[in-house]
Design a protein around this nucleic acid. Structure first.
Lengths: 337, 337
DNA sequence: TTGAAAGCGATACCAA
DNA sequence: TTGGTATCGCTTTCAA
């Protein structure tokens, strides 16, 4: 295996303490000694073991990031921002994905605790999942991403999804439409909040009474695509002016493609609002009106928050809900404010 | 801090050895003892330190993944596949990005070696970068992603980019065109290979002599977009039938949008081939003909390869260049074979 | 300016 | 079936 500090000490004819001092850049080493030691170190490309160091120091300079799936575009921006911050602070990043399975999420958390990560950034499947409960029980600093807990006093950084749903809803009710449709996917706190905000906007539009039909469990691009024909039959959307809120851009694009395929006029007959403002939303066939979250900022803030908690143990709880923004494009007819 | 095996031993009234045995699931522990120990462990939510374990075991069950940038879509599929494999083998993933800076890449490699990762998956900025040289000097198992070394005997998993460029080139020369354009971005081995393959296809088309104009350093969607007007002036692409190979889908989409903006007919006048087959290529305004790489498979194979090297030290070198595939869509006029 | 020895939190070997 | 002790590779006193 690789050399140890002991080997280097022997070859340099000094004690391990001296090697350690040189490694630490201590000034209390005679110059000639230091140079002799450095020569030996370089000769063998010796790199000290952080494993051993971590054991002595009782810290690892590592944090864990747990997300649902790596291919979730949401994750990419978060992770990117997080990693950028960590590099400036000399922290390492341990990454794992829960694949939407609570047992897996839980086991990852336990694993990371065993690895003695100094803190955890987690986008939980559910803010009351056993994993979060476990973290809460232990004294590990952690920050929730894209969720907030009503049960634990957990720090979190997320978007104000109620406000986001409200933005989508109030934009649509202002349009010239006869009915509203709400399309949702996987159950998740963030989605529930969007729905809540959406309904709040609808019920505030007192001047008119609009029906809302909801379709649940529409999760993928393909699901969205297939939904188009169903909506034509069940909601006559090819003739009845409709406003549709899809709680996820990817699905919204599927629905949009389905609608275009069926020659439904967008935005003349159907107006569509998505959620996320993913990269391609702006350049899609019909650019998509959507609600934008600043994911990069979320990642940055969460990472900084976590590092602050790690350093400064007594930090109070912070719940941060960043304001979303409505981006009006050609899939609806409103003007950008 | 958290409890140690010693604390548990004391409270359970046994030795640390016994705790260790219970932890390891050893059968050589009396049932009543085991239960007593487990009770104490659960009571305190004790989790053994992998840091200490790693020190004794001289292995960390961790591998490192180094990529250029996390927001590179290429990375997402790779990382996703890698992580999936690692979970089945109980390995942890340490992730870091080089941001296209060789010094940063080098320092990440050193850091990961200090962390004693058992192996490294690296998409090097350059296969002859100091980082790869360093890895080669040491006895760390590593696998190159999206690159291959001509200098070291390094394992690698990549696409056969020469073949990919050739596919694009030979598809274009078969079309009814009067000139060829080649658009490239950042310098990278994989790009050079695509260019080489492209030119090989052109020179093989002996029956006709087609000029090739090359534009370099076109890196982003925006660069591609702006290039459209330049090509109109310098290469009369609005009237002269042209075949364009862009070595990257994202840039190709920029160029496509620029062309459409200028009312250039695609594919009637200009035919466009991209590279990567990113998700949106199939659903773009004009679906993009492109060369597809199986990134998911690359990640899987590379991870398995690395794990094999870790376990079975004497493994011989393997250079794997996966075959790319031409996906013909509406941005060119050819038929799908 | 240097070194000896204890300790970090586990495991492994050898005895009992 | 259990426990004592050395050990992993480093840092940190404390003395010299």
């Amino acid at each position: 295996m690789s050399l140890t500090i002991f080997d280097i000490a022997k070859e340099a004819g000094v004690s391990t303490t001296t090697i350690s001092r040189v490694l630490a850049g201590s000034s209390k080493v005679k110059n000639s000694t230091r140079e002799k030691v450095l020569r030996v170190i370089e000769k063998h490309h010796y790199e000290p073991s952080e494993v051993a160091r971590n054991l002595t120091a009782r810290k690892t300079n590592t944090i864990g990031l747990i997300i649902d799936e790596i291919s979730n575009p949401f994750f990419v921006d978060i992770a990117s921002a997080v990693e950028e911050i960590l590099q400036t602070r000399n922290f390492m990043l341990m990454l794992s994905s829960s694949q939407w399975k609570e047992e897996r999420e839980f086991s990852i958390v336990r694993n990371m605790i065993r690895q003695r990560v100094e803190g955890l950034l987690i986008a939980p499947i559910n803010p009351d999942s056993p994993a979060v409960d476990f973290l809460d029980k232990r004294n590990i600093p952690f920050v929730l991403l894209n969720s907030y807990s009503t049960k634990f006093s957990a720090d979190c950084v997320t978007t104000d999804n109620i406000a986001g749903g409200y933005l989508a809803g109030s934009h649509l009710v202002k349009q010239d439409i006869e009915q509203l449709l709400l399309i949702t996917g996987y159950t998740h706190q963030s989605i529930d909040d969007r729905v809540e905000g959406f309904y709040a906007a609808v019920s505030e539009a007192k001047n008119r009474s609009l029906s809302v039909s909801r379709y649940e469990n529409i999760n993928t691009y393909k699901d969205g695509y297939s939904l188009a024909t169903i909506l034509m039959v069940r909601n006559s959307i090819s003739t009845k002016k409709s406003g549709i809120f899809v709680t996820n851009d990817n699905v919204a694009m599927g629905l949009l493609d389905g609608l275009l395929e069926q020659r439904v006029q967008v935005p003349e007959t159907v107006q569509l609002v998505g959620y996320d403002n993913i990269d391609f939303a702006a350049r899609y066939k019909i650019p998509l009106t959507t609600v934008s979250q600043s994911r990069n900022e979320m990642g940055k803030i969460a990472a900084l928050e976590l590092l602050a908690k790690i350093e400064n143990h007594g930090k109070e709880q912070r719940v941060l809900k960043l304001p979303p923004k409505l981006i009006i494009r050609q899939s609806t007819r409103g003007e950008n404010p």
